[in-house]
Design a protein around this nucleic acid. Structure first.
Length: 114
RNA sequence: UGAGUAAGUCAGAUGGUCGCGGACACAGUUUAACUGUGGACGAGGAAAGUCCGAGCUCCAUAGGGCAGGGUGCUGGGUAAUACCCAGUGGAGGCGACUCCAAGGAAAGUGCAACAGAGAUAUACCGCCCGUUCUAUAUAUAAGGUUUAAUUACGUUAUAUAUUGAAGGGGUAAGGGUGGAAAGGUGAGGUAAGAGCUCACCAGCAACUAGGUGACUAGUUGGCUAUGUAAACCCCAUCUGGAGCAAGACCAAGUAGGGACAUGAAAGCGGCUGCCCGUCGCGUCCCGUGGUAGGUUGCUUGAGCCGUCUGGUAACAGCCGGCCUAGAUAGAUGACCGUCAGAUACAGAACUCGGCUUAUAGAUUUACUCACAUA
RNA sequence: GUGCCCGUAGCUCAGCUGGAUAGAGCAUCGCCCUUCUAAGGCGAGAGUCCGGGGUUCGAAUCCCUGUGGGCACG
């Protein structure tokens, strides 16, 4: 029960830079993923939506959708990674289901699924 | 019924499952924080643009002068405003009603390209009156030739008329240019004309009456004054600066060296620019540390709702009731249903009052016009 | 969040104290020069002066309003 909620977020700019520098990346139409092994048992996730995607309403909606789909699916993947998702411009009109399937697709590509 | 005008209101609702934020209550670990449970609360009418005005904080207690900047019909409202209300004037609409940066151009300066004769006063063409010269026509007179005949012809002089030229004067009706040509229309008048005179109209000044006032109405007078102040400017009035990344407290952390000066003066810095005034400071160069801190400011406020009273209204006052986001990489979302169907513009970041801009749709009230019926 | 700045030819900029032909350099195109190219010379085209409204006789310029882009902050 506790293990399900064992993820934290990446917040500081320095941590984001570290991930970008030392990670493997992949992309599809909607999202870009960066993953890096960390020394802990749990996963850390960072979400980025740039200003190119849209105005503040669109950006915060995309962020919420990404957050929700990660929350509902993170139990399927391995632990011990720093993961950063970057939203691409196509996200501004995407629905929840599209973003969820894009995220699962990237998990599969990265061989993160258990 | 249709077309409109004005002022408002709402901004999907609801059920289930999973999830987020900070408070509160309880429990546990344990001694200052964490974990769990619980039921409440949790984005907007514009949260937007940052165009104004304030509160609050620091700069000196917020000071003086000049410059700069804002505002600009009148009266009121307000903490204040460039906002609001009521009126005045102007423009638009059949109307309900709407719109207007709307002081001063007779304090001064500047600008008005091109065109046009001329641009703040002018005289090109034109019109009119004298003078001189030339030509033509007519009339009269003189003498010459000629004829029956002052019959005809030409010459000279004078007068009149017309045409042309030169030069002088008057005029501002007409022409065309221009955004604008110094009142407009009509009549009289005149050499031709002209506010030269008169009537009406527009505009100006003074006086009288009404109104707190903008202004309105009337009488009289002199006859006339280009536009531009969103050009400088004048007048009236307001205005110190920076902004919550303001500021306050706590914690952690670094390394000094060299040159000049040592009182005064000078200099530097803060108080937007300049001058004063005032406060603080030894100055310059080289080097070093930090920029993953925390707490606070941070939400009870010129607050919201309702009755009544005053006021045409904006608004104010009394009384009663309510507490309604406070995050810090930044909280509201996802899925499945129901409501016939659909969901616009759009996300708080110290807080308010306005303005401006974006906006699917639903709905209320009052009024206007047209048509029909009675 | 707060405070500022800038939009003019394809690019970089003038012009911004109102006057009609909106200029300059580079780039593009054509011709000349050269055996050919480059360089050089001559010429040409290319502008919603960011959009809308207002002031004015007249606006790239002045005023208002929107839009796009950029900069700074302890």
């Amino acid at each position: 029960m506790l293990a399900q909620n064992l993820f934290t977020t990446i917040k500081k700019d320095r941590e984001f830079r570290q991930v970008y520098k030392n990670s493997k990346s992949m992309a599809n139409k909607l999202l870009i993923i960066y993953i890096m092994k960390n020394q802990s048992e749990s996963n850390r996730v960072g979400l980025t939506v740039s200003k190119k995607v849209g105005k503040s309403v669109v950006r915060s909606r995309v962020k919420r959708l990404m957050k929700e789909s990660f929350r509902l699916n993170h139990h399927r993947i391995k632990n011990g990674y720093d993961i950063v998702f970057v939203a691409r411009i196509g996200c501004n009109e995407a629905t929840y289901h599209e973003i969820e399937s894009a995220m699962l697709h990237l998990f599969k590509k990265m061989h993160l699924t258990k």
